Amino acid sequence: MTLTDIPALKLKNQVCHSLYSATNALIRAYRPILDQLGLTYAQYLVMLALWDEDGVMIKSLVERTRFDAGTLTPILKRLESKQLLTIVKSSNDSRQKLVVLTAAGKHLADRAKKIPDNIKGQINMPAQDVQQLKALAEQLYTLINTNIAADTE
């Protein structure tokens, strides 16, 4: 017995459910690979941002990783305890903190460089479809954030 015949209330029709399920499956695919590096998925995202640009302010990492400061701070502390990065005061503004990779953090990039190809091999999706999926996800992210920002003004 169904409680409703309203299509908008059917789980199978929910975009959010598909995205949630796909995200969880993707993170599960990353887990055994990242375990070999001693990283969680969230830590991997931070390291990717730092491998792209080292010596950045925490505010920049918040923007680039899309983690709020309350989420990012414990991740940074864990990565610092693993001696992959250090957090130092900015020489320009002592109120600002910079995140700087250690030699071990830089070296980890060499070990991580095969991860994208490994994941691509597990997904087995045409590159064009992957690019389209990423573009649509970015578009959705931007639209939602734009609407949230407009609602808070």
Rank of each mutant, 00 (worst) to 15 (best):
residue 1 M to P: 13
residue 2 T to D: 15
residue 2 T to K: 15
residue 3 L to Y: 14
residue 4 T to P: 08
residue 5 D to L: 06
residue 7 P to Q: 02
residue 9 L to K: 00
residue 11 L to D: 06
residue 11 L to F: 04
residue 15 V to Y: 06
residue 16 C to S: 12
residue 17 H to C: 09
residue 18 S to W: 10
residue 21 S to Q: 11
residue 21 S to C: 04
residue 22 A to T: 05
residue 24 N to R: 12
residue 26 L to R: 11
residue 26 L to T: 09
residue 27 I to S: 03
residue 28 R to P: 00
residue 30 Y to M: 01
residue 36 Q to Y: 00
residue 39 L to N: 12
residue 41 Y to D: 07
residue 42 A to W: 05
residue 44 Y to I: 04
residue 50 L to V: 05
residue 53 E to K: 15
residue 55 G to W: 03
residue 56 V to S: 14
residue 57 M to P: 15
residue 60 S to N: 11
residue 64 R to P: 04
residue 75 I to H: 08
residue 77 K to Q: 15
residue 78 R to C: 08
residue 80 E to I: 05
residue 81 S to H: 11
residue 81 S to I: 03
residue 83 Q to C: 11
residue 84 L to N: 07
residue 87 I to C: 13
residue 87 I to Q: 15
residue 88 V to S: 09
residue 89 K to S: 08
residue 90 S to N: 13
residue 93 D to R: 12
residue 93 D to A: 11
residue 95 R to C: 02
residue 97 K to H: 08
residue 99 V to G: 01
residue 103 A to Y: 06
residue 106 K to V: 01
residue 111 R to Y: 03
residue 113 K to M: 08
residue 113 K to S: 07
residue 116 P to V: 10
residue 117 D to L: 11
residue 117 D to A: 10
residue 118 N to E: 15
residue 123 I to S: 09
residue 125 M to L: 15
residue 125 M to Q: 13
residue 125 M to T: 14
residue 126 P to S: 01
residue 129 D to K: 14
residue 131 Q to Y: 00
residue 133 L to Q: 07
residue 138 E to C: 03
residue 147 N to C: 02
residue 149 A to D: 10
residue 150 A to S: 04
residue 151 D to P: 00
residue 151 D to E: 11
residue 151 D to I: 05
residue 153 E to C: 01
